[in-house]
Write a protein that binds this DNA or RNA. Structure first.
Length: 612
RNA sequence: GCCGGCGUAGCUCAAUGGUAGAGCACCUGUUUUGUAAACAGGCGGUUGCGGGUUCGAAUCCCACCGCCGGCUCCA
């Protein structure tokens, strides 16, 4: 066995950043402490993460919140013991022997087997603890000064739900106590932006899991404004881009999804079928025919393409519909508006020739970027998902040449458009490659906010054809695209993105009129009627309260503009403008304010940075 | 779906086996208000649902439903 001091290492297998090293060592120190308190615990793995670290344990005893406190205290002791970390490079046989001697063969031997032949196998040791580990680590356990254990969670061994579920302890660590405190404070503040909390406070939507059902949001009037403004934007944008709107029912016969090929792939995430029983009184002719709630709009749209004879002159044909779809998501996966069971897709299907594909695909990507600019959305990641040849015929349709061809086309468009993207294998749709746009919710969870997919398989299954210029028949390619994803998720995301401080064009209530006393009520009513007639969403605060209380209500309701109306203003046909961004802006003529407001709405201006 | 935690008034939370309570919101009255909370009174709960233990259950036990933190999955 070769024993090396860390300081003398020239090139550890996978050098980590100093922060990753600290957190990685945090997870080893966590395991050290757990084994002291629960020697029978079996270890799996404990890597650093973007925000901290975790370690997975298999243990009969269920960790409790009190255990976390004790473990954290023990970790503190380990840190204070100032244990040096040692790296030991060993042979495969020696490694297995070490694992057995420590009674950790249950998971560690499997982890050892994962290490490819020829790669250096190493252990890291601190104090009495030793773990199979590529490294790297801090030099002394005392480096771990600012850390905190955060939560206990179940996690499947190797992330596979067929495997045993282990207990995962999450924690975080920072170089300094100040940074840790800042991080914990950020977590607290993130909770205030959580769309579930704001949705309730701002009266945007509700869930009634008992009577309506889990994952089925009910939109209150204020939330409905958000959806409809979003749709208005989408309709304008798509009209300009040559899309045509269509409408299709929410249900369809089983046959439609057998034709599309969705049922074998998606049956589990569809609501169970409605079955019309033979002899049922209302439907005497029914003979066990099944109807499904639609989980996607494409089969219906394919039917619309096929409904009329199509020529190459009709292409590209762009059919748009914000159709409501229903997916039976597993109960544990529901999350506010981000993951629901009824959703409106910002959907359209573009049927085109191979020659037209690049331009169409590119135009769709540009539409994404245009939307993201309007919303000031800067932090996202484009993910290009391709197929895995090993899964052909299982997860992906078995047409290897078409996969290659379309994936090459997509990659070329992305590169030519200069779009930054990451490529991930084995994540494509079953009918073709796709581009997803990933964003992160305020609580750090990753979501696909938009998607753009190529379909080279399903149009053929529907027998879709067009007549070419040479008077032959050809099958169109189909682009499925939803730049605003589903309106539920997009709005959930926007609520967090803006922290409820929506741009004026989106704000459910754009202007709040606040008379100082009863004496200005008539003036207030007149302004309200004028603004309303101008298409502005306005309310008049008629409560019998002091001005401060009314202002406060306006702030809490996150209304962009509060107009204070006193005697002077009524006299001069003026308003005292208080904006959410700048606070008290002083008195100005009402006509002047109205013009400014209309312009701000018409240009869909982003909110100005809020003063602190 | 799985592991763990939690379900009390519209909201935020008290009440650890002995009469369910507070603040805010809402309604009424007084006050007539100048840029983030005037004062007083009133309304409001079979403690998620169903069983069980007990003289007695919000509280203890069981099952179900839901929510939350993760895992898995996904727009």
């Amino acid at each position: 066995m070769r024993l090396v001091r860390i300081s003398s290492l020239l090139s550890p297998a996978m050098p980590m950043s100093p922060l990753e090293e600290l957190r990685h060592s945090g997870s080893h120190i966590l395991a050290t402490a757990v084994l002291r308190l629960f020697p029978e615990a079996k270890l799996d793995i404990g890597p650093p993460t973007d925000t901290g670290f975790y370690y997975d344990f298999d243990l009969e005893h269920k960790f409790t919140a009190e255990d976390l406190v004790k473990i954290e205290a023990e970790m503190k002791k380990v840190a204070e013991e100032n244990q040096p970390f040692y790296r030991k490079e060993v042979s495969r046989e020696e490694a297995a022997e070490i694992i057995r001697s420590r009674g950790q063969e249950l998971y560690k031997l499997g982890r050892l087997a994962d290490i490819p032949a020829g790669e250096q196998i190493s252990f890291y040791q601190n104090g009495e603890f030793m773990d199979l580990c590529a490294g790297t680590h801090v030099r002394y356990s005392s480096k771990l000064k600012a850390f905190k254990l955060l939560s206990i969670a179940g996690a499947y061994h190797r992330g596979d739900e067929k495997n045993k579920q282990l207990q995962r302890i999450y924690g975080t660590a920072f170089p300094t106590k100040e940074e840790l405190a800042q991080h914990l404070d950020n977590l607290e503040q993130a909770k205030a932006r959580d769309h579930r909390k704001l949705g309730k406070e701002l009266e945007l939507f509700v869930f009634d899991a008992d009577d309506v059902g889990p994952g089925l949001p009910l939109w209150l009037p204020k939330g409905t404004v958000l959806i409809e403004e979003l749709e208005k934007l989408a309709k304008e944008t798509e009209f300009a881009a040559g899309y045509q709107r269509v409408r299709t029912p929410h249900i369809a016969r089983e046959k439609l999804y057998l034709t599309s090929g969705h049922l074998p792939y998606y049956a589990d995430s569809m609501f169970p079928p409605m079955e019309l029983k033979e002899g049922a009184s209302a439907q005497p002719e029914a003979t066990g025919e099944k109807y499904y709630l639609k989980a996607m709009n494409c089969p219906h749209h394919h039917k619309l393409f096929g409904a009329l004879p199509r020529s190459y002159r009709d292409l590209p044909l762009r059919l748009a519909e914000y159709g409501t779809c229903y997916r039976y998501e597993q109960s544990g996966e529901l999350l506010g508006l981000m993951r629901v069971r009824s959703m409106q897709m910002n959907d359209a299907h573009i049927y085109c020739t191979e020659e037209q594909f690049a331009a169409e695909f590119r135009a769709v990507n540009e539409m994404y970027l245009k939307y993201f600019k309007i919303f000031g959305l800067g932090k996202y990641q484009m993910r290009f998902s391709t197929h895995d040849p090993a899964q052909l015929g299982k997860k992906f349709v078995d047409q290897p040449e078409l996969w290659k061809k379309t994936e090459d086309m997509v990659r070329r468009v992305l590169v030519e458009s200069g779009i930054n993207f990451v490529e991930v294998a084995n994540e494509a749709a079953f009918y073709g490659p796709k581009i997803d746009v990933q964003v992160w919710s305020i609580i750090g969870r990753e979501f696909t906010i938009a998607t753009n997919q190529v379909d080279f398989a399903v149009p053929a299954r529907f027998g879709l054809e067009y007549v070419t210029a040479e008077n032959t028949k050809a099958t169109p390619l189909c682009i499925h695209r939803a730049p605003l994803g589903t309106h539920e998720r997009f709005i959930g995301f926007l609520i967090e993105h803006f922290a409820g401080d929506f741009p004026v064009w989106l704000a459910p209530e754009q202007v709040r009129l606040v008379p100082i006393s009863e004496k200005q009520l008539d003036y207030g009513r007149a302004l309200r009627d004028t603004l309303h007639a101008a298409g502005v969403r306005v309310t008049l605060d008629e409560h019998n309260d002091k001005l401060g209380a009314k202002i406060r209500r306006g702030e809490l309701d996150k209304v962009p503009y509060t107009l204070v109306l006193g005697g002077k203003e009524a006299e001069a046909q003026a308003v005292s403008v208080r904006s959410r961004a700048k606070g008290d802006e002083g008195v100005q003529p009402f006509a002047h304010y109205l013009e400014r407001l209309k312009a701000e709405i018409a240009t869909r201006a982003l909110p100005e940075k809020k003063k602190t």
